[in-house]
Amino acid sequence: MKKLINDPNQVVDDMLAGMVEAHSDKLKRLPDTNVMIRKDAPVSGKVGIISGGGSGHEPAHAGYVGKGMLDGAVCGEVFTSPTPDQILAAIQAVDSGKGVLLIIKNYTGDMMNFEMAAEMAEAEGIQVAKVVVNDDVAVEDSTYTTGRRGIAGTVFVHKIAGALAEQGATLAEVEAVAKKTVENVRSMGMALTPCTVPAAGKPGFELGENEIEIGMGIHGEPGIEKTSIQSADEIAQILLNNILEDLPLKEHDKVAVMINGLGATPLMELYIIHKKVSEILREKRIHIHETFVGEFMTSLEMAGCSISLLKLDDQLSELLDAQADTIAFKK
């Protein structure tokens, strides 16, 4: 394992320290926590929005803290859900009295820890609403299992809920638009290489010289199948087919597209993927409102990508276009 780190057990703390140094105009760190909040939190008259999860997905989630997106990000250990006390501290710090929305990715650990924190906050008299993101179509959606994972589509939920909250909407309104976003966003990823949790010291899984994993999660959880390397066009087609099967789109529908790198994928390759994605959507006469290409929800130094599609109506596209000023997302 070659990484630019000091102590594998200190990576989250060191990272957050460096982040605060770099972006003290936007962020502050709640003392003695791994919680990053807006410099001006709590923003009076505004619903607070909190997201978070394990670290290792940077710029998620602290990169989205700022005007027009999140009020707070709770950063767990690498790939490990943060604990309820930290989430509670974040809720307390960003609540201006208008309540707090928790944006949770659908993982058992995140679900349980955020729920416990929500219960504690409610016991203190803070209004809390929750929205669970489960955009990953690689996972079967069944009531008998834990359901689908939340992956890169979460960034759209941050953006849209954050934009509405910035306008002074109520907690119920912000919750509703966040849920609407979740209902309209689908994603799927694939990996070319594994990644190494620093404290684990070795890769989470193995892929052969010519093997790729289709439907990869963002924590090294395996996907649908291991297969041999294919062309960018074929991979784009596979991911997009799976998404379109699940998110039926008609001619003239409007979407936002996110081509997300998992950490070690050159932008060049993401654009090559997008070439095919835009071709396919054009053929189907689906209108791309905006395309986001880059690293939005990573998995340490994993090579690979995910594609997300968000079906837009007028409200969603207006909120997507609204101003945002965060480290990783500016509009």
Partner: peptide, 12 residues
Amino acid sequence: LIAKVGGASGPL
């Protein structure tokens, strides 16, 4: 354990 483990196993 709740405050230090995290993940699924911490709350459990």
